[in-house]
């Protein structure tokens, strides 16, 4: 279940409403979308989903070779090499996004860090693992969103709409043992999203914090090595639900 950034709403009910293939697809034609962590798992599924809906997509990830390959294999996408957890990468990433797309309508902060792997009790977690999780999951989205706020506000003023989607988790609200670094960082991101959304209402920028559910992704395999993939959501299904939520937060456009 996709949950909006409403504190009273449950974030735990995962596979209650899987998208059906017969549901009509809301197009994102001509929209300029940036996705971090876009070369694997949910990020890659989001790249494919947005491209299939007609968006222009910039994907950001650390690995140069993978970025080039994914960009090559997906017509209409732009590959950008950068690490959102590194402050000095923020502006080079932001500049390439707005430069290559000619502006920005939707930013999806998807890149995440799990904290210690294998997962560990907080008492056994190294400070560096917490710092890395916070840098990737909180500071990274904060910095990139801030650097792109002007572009997003311009898009909103021009009537195209502007959405920032921060990928959350049920671990943001529930105190799952072993998920301390990740859960605390996602809780911070969730709250940051809600506050920023309040602050930007007048500018027409919407910030969403949504939980995609437990998915069959490389990250989940790192966290829960023995999990049965059959019990997990497919990332493509989650990507479709998230794209619907983004489309719902954008103004209805006459040209599509």
């Amino acid at each position: 279940m996709i949950v909006q950034s409403d504190p009273s709403a449950p974030i735990v009910d995962r596979n209650a409403h899987p998208a059906r293939s017969t549901d009509p697809v809301v197009p994102l034609a001509g929209l300029r979308v940036a996705i971090t962590g876009g070369t694997s798992g949910l990020g890659l599924a989001l790249v494919q989903e947005c491209l299939a809906r007609g968006a222009c997509v910039a994907l950001v990830a650390r690995g140069g070779e993978r970025v080039q390959r994914v960009a090559r294999e997906h017509r209409g996408s732009h590959g950008i090499v950068g690490d959102v957890s590194v402050k000095d990468d923020t502006y080079p990433i932001a500049m390439q996004i707005t430069g290559e797309l000619g502006g920005l309508d939707v930013l999806i902060n998807n890149a995440s860090d799990l904290g210690p792997t294998p997962l560990a009790l907080l008492g056994d977690t190294a400070c560096e693992d917490v710092e890395r999780a916070l840098a990737t999951n909180v500071l990274g989205p904060f910095r990139l969103t801030k650097a792109l706020l002007g572009a997003l506000a311009a898009s909103a003023r021009e009537g195209r709409g502007a959405v920032v989607l921060n990928i959350s988790s049920d671990a943001a609200l529930n105190p799952y043992p072993l998920w301390g670094a990740y859960g605390a960082s996602k809780a911070a991101l969730h709250h940051l999203t809600r506050i920023w959304n309040e602050e930007l209402v007048a500018e027409g920028i919407h910030l969403l914090s949504l939980d995609p559910g437990d998915m069959d992704t490389p990250m989940h395999a790192l966290a829960v090595p023995g999990a049965d993939p059959a019990t997990l959501k497919r990332p493509e299904v989650a990507a479709r639900e998230l794209a619907d939520s983004v489309a719902a937060a954008l103004p209805v456009r006459a040209d599509v």
Binding site: Y91, P92, M95, G103, A151, A154
Partner: peptide, 29 residues
């Protein structure tokens, strides 16, 4: 993005960072 630096003049002795020269509302580069 990787190699360029903000244009800078001698009246500012320390190297400028990108965030020094982007206005808060900066959009298209």
């Amino acid at each position: 993005a990787r190699h360029g630096r903000p244009i800078q003049y001698a009246h500012i002795p320390a190297p400028l960072a990108p965030w020094d020269v982007w206005t808060p509302i900066a959009g298209p580069p």
